[in-house]
């Protein structure tokens, strides 16, 4: 006659509860990560800064920026703008990239995990040739914003 729970019963119940808790924890972790990404990916103020940077550097007037590359890291040295560094300092920009608008293949090992995740999250719904991607650094937190440019006449 059984007078209490057998070890097997206890283990089955504990395993079931553990799996439920793990699933619950996984769901919450996902929620937190997504909410964090809302702040660091395409944050409203970063998008406006990226737009003004594009305007200042007159990127729409530049042709064949990438040549044969899929993505390049650019700096003020690529532009004849004497106050480019001032703008970069004011906007807390740490890196500027130009990529093909519809970027599919690139060497992910060269870039930060967050940067790769950001590129993975962007949509290619508009008809542009290039994408200006800007990495901002505030208090050791990197955030990203991008904007399309260059008309695609094809």
């Amino acid at each position: 006659m059984k007078k209490g729970f057998a070890l097997l019963e206890t283990i089955i119940v504990i395993t079931f509860v553990s799996v439920s808790l793990l699933l619950l924890y996984g769901t919450f972790t996902n929620m937190f990560n997504n909410s964090e990404k809302n702040i660091i990916f395409d944050n409203a103020s970063d998008i406006y800064k990226t737009y003004f940077l594009k305007e200042y550097l007159a990127m729409d007037n530049l042709n064949d920026l990438l040549k044969n590359e899929n993505i390049i890291n650019i700096s003020c040295a690529n532009f004849e703008k004497s106050d480019c560094e001032t703008l970069i300092k004011n906007y807390h920009i740490s890196n500027i990239y130009i990529s093909k608008y519809d970027l599919k293949n690139y060497d992910k090992s060269k870039y930060k995990a967050n940067f790769n995740e950001y590129l993975n999250s962007v949509t290619n719904k508009d008809n542009y040739l290039y994408r200006l991607i800007v990495e901002y650094k505030n208090n050791n937190t990197f955030s990203y914003a991008s904007i399309g440019f260059g008309d695609n006449h094809e």
Binding site: L7, T10, I11, I14, V17, S18, L21, L22, L24, Y25, F28, T29, F32
Partner: peptide, 23 residues
């Protein structure tokens, strides 16, 4: 049996604490 039960319960309590902290 007692040791196994305590170990498993401890793991669950730890997981539960993590979830509670997040909430």
């Amino acid at each position: 049996e007692l040791l196994i039960s305590i170990t498993l319960t401890s793991i669950i309590v730890l997981l539960l604490i993590e979830v509670i902290i997040s909430l």
